Simulated assay, not measured.
Amino acid sequence: MKQNMEFRRFLCKGKSNILAECILIAMAHNVNKFHNKIKNGKCRTYLYSTKNVA
């Protein structure tokens, strides 16, 4: 995933810093996927039906 987003190496040292950087990259990947769904108009499907409130 890092290489697909053109990140070649970690910028920080230490296990906790690397974990934080991996989490940030995963969040950025999910935001990018969501943006592409919105842009392509495929964001109207839901897992559960919505309730109509009157």
Rank of each mutant, 00 (worst) to 15 (best):
R9W: 01
G41Q: 02
F34P: 06
T45D: 02
G14K: 12
R44D: 11
R8F: 11
K42T: 04
N32S: 10
V31W: 02
K13C: 15
F7S: 00
F10G: 04
M27K: 10
N17G: 13
K39W: 07
F10V: 06
Y48H: 15
N4C: 14
K15R: 09
R9V: 01
E21C: 03
K33S: 15
R9F: 04
C12K: 07
Y48R: 08
C12G: 13
L47P: 00
L11M: 08
Y48M: 06
L24A: 14
A20D: 08
M5Y: 13
F34Y: 14
N4W: 01
R44V: 00
N32W: 09
V31L: 09
S16T: 07
Y46H: 14
L19T: 14
I18D: 02
G41S: 00
L47V: 14
K13D: 12
C12L: 12
A20Y: 04
K15P: 08
Q3K: 05
C22N: 14
F34H: 13
S49F: 15
C12E: 10
M27W: 09
E6M: 01
Y46A: 10
R8A: 03
F7K: 10
L24W: 14
L11F: 12
A26W: 12
S16Q: 01
L11S: 07
N36Y: 00
I18L: 02
A20H: 13
I18Y: 00
E6D: 08
M27V: 15
I18M: 09
R8H: 00
K39M: 03
R44F: 03
I38L: 00
I25F: 13
Q3T: 10
A26T: 02
N17L: 12
Q3F: 10
L11I: 13
N36I: 09
G14E: 11
E21S: 03
N40T: 03
V31T: 15
R9P: 03
L11K: 15
Q3Y: 05
V31R: 08
I25P: 03
I18K: 12
R9H: 02
R9Y: 01
H35Y: 10
C43T: 01
F10P: 06
N36H: 06
N40A: 06
K13R: 07
L24H: 11
K42L: 05
R9Q: 04
A26G: 05
Y48P: 05
G41D: 04
F7L: 08
E21M: 01
K15S: 11
T45N: 13
H35G: 09
I23N: 08
F10A: 09
R9I: 01
K13W: 14
N17Y: 07
V31Y: 08
M5Q: 15
A26I: 09
K37Y: 05
L24G: 09
L24N: 15
E21P: 01
